[in-house]
């Protein structure tokens, strides 16, 4: 759905058209669900958080300002807040620390070592993936937005309510953290 189509659907939703709500959900639920999965790791909970996100968004559709951000970015901001609120209500998850499972080739978990053989580069990628998965969801989400989705600092700052300086500082800290996990 292009931005123009999204804007038209938003206008229709503001008029209360149910079909517009459905179309907006179908167009943007994938990204919101992925965000929720990033935070929860559970499809059922992610779907619930996705629905919560859209309900909050549609109830606050009048506050959406297209001059500040795109509709998808605005939805990501609501999804981020919903997921963070959900995590704060949950008991702290038990993250697997790289310190607890040294990432040496000889001590690879069975689940990993049972996978098809990786090349040298792929092995490093696997190590990096494991290091990434050991990060807290908020930090991994920030890296995903910046490196994978290649969003600008302004967009990420809008989603996470952080300044560009705070984002740069946080990214540097996460990179150092990852480097330490990979080099120790």
């Amino acid at each position: 759905m292009t931005q123009t189509e999204t804007a038209l659907q938003v206008q229709a939703a503001l008029r209360g058209e149910q079909l517009a709500f459905r179309r907006l959900f179908e167009a943007h639920s994938g990204a919101v669900f992925a965000t929720a999965m990033r935070f929860t790791g559970n499809a059922e909970t992610a779907e619930e958080l996705t629905q919560d996100t859209f309900l909050r968004a549609f109830n606050a559709l009048d506050t959406y300002d297209d001059s500040r951000a795109q509709f998808a970015t605005w939805l990501q901001r609501i999804a981020y807040n919903t997921c963070v609120s959900h995590l704060r209500r949950q008991p702290p998850p038990s993250h697997i620390s790289l310190d607890d499972s040294p990432l040496s080739e000889g001590e690879m978990p069975d689940s990993i070592s049972d996978e098809p053989a990786f090349s040298a580069d792929e092995s490093r990628t696997e190590q990096l993936m494991r290091a990434l998965e050991s990060l807290p969801p908020e930090e991994r989400h920030l890296l995903t937005l910046f490196y994978f989705e290649q969003r600008t600092l302004n967009e990420i700052g809008y989603i996470m309510r952080l300044s560009n300086a705070a984002l740069s500082s946080r990214l540097n800290r996460i990179r150092k953290k990852l480097y330490l996990k990979l080099t120790t």
């Binding site: 992925a34 990628t125 990096l128 998965e133 890296l143 995903t144 490196y147 990179r175 990852l178 480097y179």
Partner: peptide, 14 residues
Amino acid sequence: LTAAALRAALARIE
């Protein structure tokens, strides 16, 4: 720990 490596790892996670 390059950006490309991070991007590739994150893509595989996604």
